[in-house]
Design a protein around this nucleic acid. Structure first.
Lengths: 208, 208
DNA sequence: TAGATTGTTAATCGATTAACAATC
DNA sequence: TAGATTGTTAATCGATTAACAATC
């Protein structure tokens, strides 16, 4: 297990989800060709990825579906529940608080945080706490990953607090473009930008 | 204006938003070095990108902020309002219906669609219509881009209907991994996968 | 003029693909 | 055995970076 770029890890996730589907269809073994087709990539790429992570197949008989899923679960840490918090309980934050695809993927939202007293609900099933409790909560529960869904103005301070609290990864929905540092990994999600880019490309096509 | 990979276009968007901030700070000109620093990329990259899109600077005096913004607006189509629809008005879909960062970026949600009669509201400011009206609406309003926020089971049919209705770009929030075709460009957004990937990388770091 | 910055070309780097020997 | 598929090495491709001449 050496190198691993972001796009390679994304592919690992994709392999895993395709394999789970194939398993429900009764597949026992699968060939690099099948997986390549399913993901729209070359069979070479699949084999290369697998050898990188020591996912072994059989020269003739392809790969064992069960075995692959098992190993991918290990690699991706899907064998433990992954706890996260959500900072900023506005529209998007609230929608994510009860996102059922988190549950089905073994991701558990353990708390939300906000400064608006009207949304604080410490007794809810997933408690929404005052932001002042952030640091102590993170430490007490050993939280490592946070989703940041606050408005733009408080984003810089909230970011700083998250890093100081020891958060190691942030999924950033704010428009503030963050960059990964040694102590904290960032993944920016910018929905309006995705739309903007789609418009660019379809305009480009129509022009040509 | 030749080549343009997805990551390059993303950078164009980033340049634009940094430049807008610099403008509010009173900047009149800017150097490739400044922009590189702001985006965490090399100055070479900035100049390369700009030359690709014929964004001209002055050998000594850097680039004119106003001029750059103007050109980037053209390139990215920010001079017209960009109309989109949202198909699937569950939690995420509804949150996006009233997303104020769309408005501030010139993106207008013109309608939502759903099959659940209890969420249909044809008279709302942004109407929520029955899915049966999708095709006629898309045609009548010349809609080119849709956000897909339906649950997994109906996703394949909805996708097919969008393509047949003539939609040219989809921002896909469903877990169904779609692939761009000649007639329809896809951008997948998979939040649980982003979280999964963050966990992978922070586990990797801690292991080393 | 001397110094600084662009624009572009060449070099480097990394990721993807092709090819093929090993082998089941 | 013949045919098919893996695992790996070499070739290709594209994107990023370095370098530097042009020039303000």
């Amino acid at each position: 297990m050496r190198e691993s770029s972001r796009s390679m890890v994304e592919r690992l996730s994709s392999y895993r989800s395709v394999l789970c589907k194939l398993k429900t269809l009764g597949f026992v073994k699968v060939f690099s060709d099948n997986l390549g087709d399913a993901l729209g990539i070359s069979a070479s790429q699949v084999r290369k990825d697998f050898s990188q992570f020591e996912l072994k197949g059989n020269k003739k008989g392809g790969y064992q579906v069960d075995e692959l899923i098992e190993r991918l679960n290990e690699i991706l840490g899907k064998n433990e529940v992954q706890d996260i918090i959500i900072v900023g309980c506005g529209k998007i934050g609230t929608a994510l608080m009860n996102y059922n695809r988190f549950t089905s993927e073994g991701i558990r939202v353990v708390a939300g945080f906000d400064t608006d007293p009207t949304v604080i609900r410490p007794d809810a099933r997933i408690p929404v706490l005052d932001l002042s409790e952030l640091e102590s909560f993170v430490e007490r529960h050993g939280i490592r990953i946070a989703i940041m869904t606050v408005p733009e103005p408080p984003a810089p301070q909230v970011y700083e607090r998250l890093v100081n609290a020891g958060i190691e990864g942030i999924l950033n929905f704010t428009p503030m473009q963050l960059r990964s540092s040694g102590s904290c990994l960032i993944q920016n999600v910018n929905i309006e930008r995705e739309i903007e880019n789609l418009f660019y490309f379809i305009n480009l096509q129509n022009r040509e």
